[in-house]
Design a protein around this nucleic acid. Structure first.
Lengths: 346, 346
DNA sequence: CTGAAAGCGCTTACAG
DNA sequence: CTGAAAGCGCTTACAG
């Protein structure tokens, strides 16, 4: 029903080989025959069947983006960045939404991207060494974002240092009891970001000679709801903190809501700092640490394209790109102000 | 390098036809040979090349999602909904990000999805009748979300009525001068939602016998930034409104920020209502009108799957699903309170 | 500069 | 229940 290459060949009075060459802009086609072919193709509204081309060449001209839970802000932004450069380079982009531990297992077992794409970008999926090895054995070029490994090129940020900077900001404002709002209690998916950010939190406190109180480390599930619950928990403590570092802006926003509901003034009575610089952070006045998200996606796509070029042949080197972060102070953090202490206390 | 069907056939000692049947679970394969084939496939880590299957069957088992600007909340949620049902049904999902008028033209001209997918879901891309006809002529099943037409199945909401309800809420609170924060000044992409929501705004005011003041209708670009600018504009008016209806929550959030910066109390001095029930609306206390976004995506996927079933054959009927919305009152709207009027004025 | 032909890896009547 | 063979629509040496 729809035109194939032989229809075009017939219409133009040439062979299919010539049509193929002419349409793809290959050299060694007489200008006049190229014209004839182009005209015939246009008349027939011909589009080449990519599947036939894929079969013949072994290249799919498609790449897969694997993300856990792509409705989260970080992932959508990152995918958008990658998508833009991939599309510009003429690639189709396939979405693999790998959320939950079972779909994760299935993905790793089946590796459904094989023979479907020329490469994949894995965003923030934590992978053990043997899992990395398995993926690598599939033969498809991979770049990871968030996760660093020797095995594949990656793009990420320095979570430890960024988190440390966030906490130092709180310390400099005079806070000593600082809550940490982190991931799920079990971190069943084993994300690395929470681990590293926690490490930065510890480093900052220790550098200030402040004792770590484990009860100040509460789960926030990387969601707004979780952030709100975390605050409830922190403020129910006997000796509650005066500030909190939330490992994502979404959790910070949840925290802010809980504080509002509780009637706790921000930042007069409690300071909150987030992580990401979510689009909304500016509008909410949230102090946070900025990370370039779209740019990480773009960079990942660049790395993948590059890696696919040199896929066969020369020794693989796997560049590890670390992008800069920076503290952005807005209005949810302020000086520690022991207004609630009994007047006249030491 | 990677195993093909004939490798499996050799390993199992059967023909490729039998391998094909066995692996796809077709009937008429002896249990013992099926076992043998399965074992051989597992040993060789065989995966069928989908491109070959596509070529042979003419079915791609892939569907395309075309979205303008998918970093916006609405689109990501909607895509997530559709993606989940499509993936569950065994389809690959391709992303077509059609943002900007030029990429829109290119998309409509080339229809790059032809021969690549079995169907597409078009989210909120406004299309003229001739454009719809062109898309339809491509022969690929289509369902639209947001846009209603006789031509294709669609899922949408009643924007007019929903917007009317939002404005009625403001009117019932005593507001008479109500700003409308809408799309771009030119609406160059010709989205239908802003048109319909504006219509609802007009209807509500007219029903209350309130005169429409065109200067209260300001562009907000469906972004937070635009929402903030819109408020600046409204409050610079000689006779400023006391409330505003923003056609999206993102614009409403921008508006809220501008009001905060201006030191205008919400809702004591100014009320704001949004549209969408964005994930964050609850956390911000934003009064808004809820629309089911993920569910619209899911429904679109269901309709598409259904439509693809009956693609050839019986007369096409194009169901138009309209999903319910509802007002959610939170804390950004309140009674009109003419506190700023000079005391003792009539 | 151009064409005939093989081949990519599947699926699917058609026979048996 | 199974196999031989044609065919899907391209690309790519190989000849000329």
């Amino acid at each position: 029903m729809t035109a194939s290459i032989s229809d075009v060949a017939a219409q133009a009075g040439v062979s299919v080989a010539t049509v193929s060459r002419a349409l793809r802009g290959l050299p060694n086609v007489a200008p006049s025959t190229r014209d004839r072919v182009l005209r015939a193709a246009a008349e027939l509204e011909y589009v080449a069947d990519p599947n036939a081309a894929r079969l013949a060449t072994g290249q799919t001209r498609a790449i897969g983006m694997v993300v856990p839970l792509f409705t989260q802000w970080f992932f959508t932004q990152c995918v958008a960045g990658a998508e833009a450069v991939l599309t510009a380079a003429g690639y189709d982009v396939l979405l693999y939404n790998v959320s939950g531990t079972d779909s994760r297992e299935r993905f790793l077992d089946d590796m459904p991207f094989r023979k479907r794409v020329d490469g994949i970008i894995v965003i923030d999926l934590p992978l053990s060494d043997v899992e990395l090895e398995r993926l690598g054995a599939s033969g498809v070029p991979i770049v990871t974002v968030g996760l660093r490994s020797e095995r594949f090129p990656s793009v990420s940020i320095d979570n430890v240092q960024a988190a440390e900077e966030a906490c130092r900001h709180l310390l400099e404002l005079g806070h000593e009891q600082i809550g940490l709002i982190s991931n799920l209690p079990d971190n069943s998916l084993n994300f690395t970001a929470p681990l590293e950010r926690r490490q930065g939190y510890h480093a900052a406190l220790e550098a200030s000679g402040i004792k770590i109180r484990p009860e100040l480390d509460v789960p926030g599930n990387f969601s707004m709801e979780g952030g709100a619950e975390a605050v409830d928990r922190l403020l129910a403590l006997d000796d509650p903190p005066t500030a909190a570092f939330a490992e994502s802006d979404e959790m910070a926003i949840g925290a802010l809501k809980a504080l509002r509901d509780l009637g706790v003034g921000v930042p007069e009575e409690f300071s909150v700092i987030g992580f990401d610089d979510h689009d909304m952070a500016e509008y909410i006045g949230l102090t946070t640490v900025f990370q370039p998200v779209v740019a990480q996606g773009e960079m990942a796509a660049d790395l993948l394209l590059e890696q696919m070029q040199s896929a066969d042949g020369e020794a693989r080197h796997a560049p590890q790109v670390v992008m800069p972060t920076r503290l952005i102070v807005r209005t949810t953090t302020g000086r520690h102000n022991p207004v609630r202490e009994p007047v006249g206390s030491p």
